[in-house]
Design a protein around this nucleic acid. Structure first.
Lengths: 215, 215
DNA sequence: CGAAACATTGACACGCTTCAACAGTGGTGG
DNA sequence: CCACCACTGTTGAAGCGTGTCAATGTTTCG
């Protein structure tokens, strides 16, 4: 269904706030992120988008401008899907409809879990939980992440996703390193003790796993 | 489309975690809320549900148990819609599909705004912002909330929605009261200075307002 | 080689939590 | 009708987690 396919350099805006573009984007390669800039200059990252993710779905029905930035972190390949073709496919192809529903449900589940993290988990637990979420999402698209994974997110971006300052996140990462749980440096996360992390974060991957078809 | 209509007493669970009920709920009267209980006993409120809200939509396509509580705050009237009839209506009635999309988009927008609050706004601003959100949502369903509104949410619930302790929220509410912005007591919010609040919270209601149909 | 981006550290300040206690309020039963 | 109790709201004091400010080290890349 995808239409225009595009390659984007690292750290390039893809959609600017108040663009009224009526399309969704499918990430095919690379990492991107969606964030909001507040009046005081601070930044809240809403989501990191990985290959296979669809960005902008729930916003489509608003047919208006979104107040968020959508930006590449690495070199990225994306295809855009116009709202019109999407709705057509949604009506005619049940498989497409199911995929869309799953995509929206997953996005919402991830959002909810971060809300819980920001509201009720300490910086340490929150950080561990988020790394495990990334590891799990990557493993769902075929990467083996048990011992680590490439993660092109610097400490500023990560801090802005976790509601922390980069400085404090740095201390948290040191703590995780000194506890022999994980090391994050120069674009790579090394997981030293997966089980220990899972326990620290009370991480349960259920919210990320696609529904098993029953009957 | 609604099927069974039900009346529920205040403070009664409606859906328990790990119930695998395949239906969504339309609130017709009263307030309810969705929350998660963490292993350490703390609680994060995910949403307060007001009349007209639909609860459980994105979760439907997961066809599995949700890990959340759904509970009444006041006496509540709800009707349930089974996933089957919902999908049928969705396929045959474009108006239904649009309404669902709007409902999902709104829910997601509210979630995102709270994520931003928890991540990047102080307790004072966060609280003011949330009260204004409630006021705006109520005004969209016909209540005049400029000078205040009934709000059957005690300080414990509100604190658990805002990621604060009830004790600190109490101090924040005192601060708002002493700044002549709002008073919250015994189930009622009195707004003394709407503009002042809006300025303090940098509140922009756009994210809550339904899309204007163009042309 | 130099410059910019990113990571790290220390000292200190502040916002929010914790713990403990008490006051107000409404509902219930004796 | 009043005593009692549960629930909710309020306050103070102290401690801790996170933020702020300022500086330095490290890596990357032109």
């Amino acid at each position: 269904m995808s239409q225009r396919k595009r390659r984007v350099d690292p750290n390039q805006p893809i959609v600017l706030p108040n663009d009224a573009s009526e399309e969704a984007y499918l990430i095919q390669r690379g990492w991107a992120c969606v964030y909001k800039l507040l009046p005081d200059g601070s930044r809240q990252v809403l989501s990191f988008s990985l290959p296979g993710d669809i960005v902008g779905l729930p916003g489509l029905s608003l047919e208006g401008a979104s107040p968020f930035w959508f930006e590449s972190l690495t070199e990225v390949e994306i295809s855009s899907i116009s709202s019109a073709t999407l709705f057509r496919g949604l009506a005619s192809e049940p498989a497409v409809a199911r995929a869309m529903q799953w995509s929206v449900a997953l996005e919402s589940a991830i959002l909810i879990e971060r809300l819980i993290s920001l509201g009720r988990r300490s910086a340490l637990v929150r950080t561990a939980h988020f790394i495990l979420e990334l590891a799990t999402r990557l493993s769902l698209i075929g990467e083996d992440t048990r011992r680590g994974f490439d993660c092109p997110v610097n400490q500023y971006w990560l801090a802005d996703a976790l509601g922390l300052t980069a400085i404090h996140l740095n201390r948290v990462l040191r703590e995780l390193r000194e506890a022999h749980l994980l090391t994050m440096r120069s674009g790579h996360v090394e997981i030293h003790n997966f089980e220990g992390l899972r326990e620290l974060a009370a991480f349960d991957a259920d919210y990320l796993t696609p529904p098993k078809r029953r009957h």
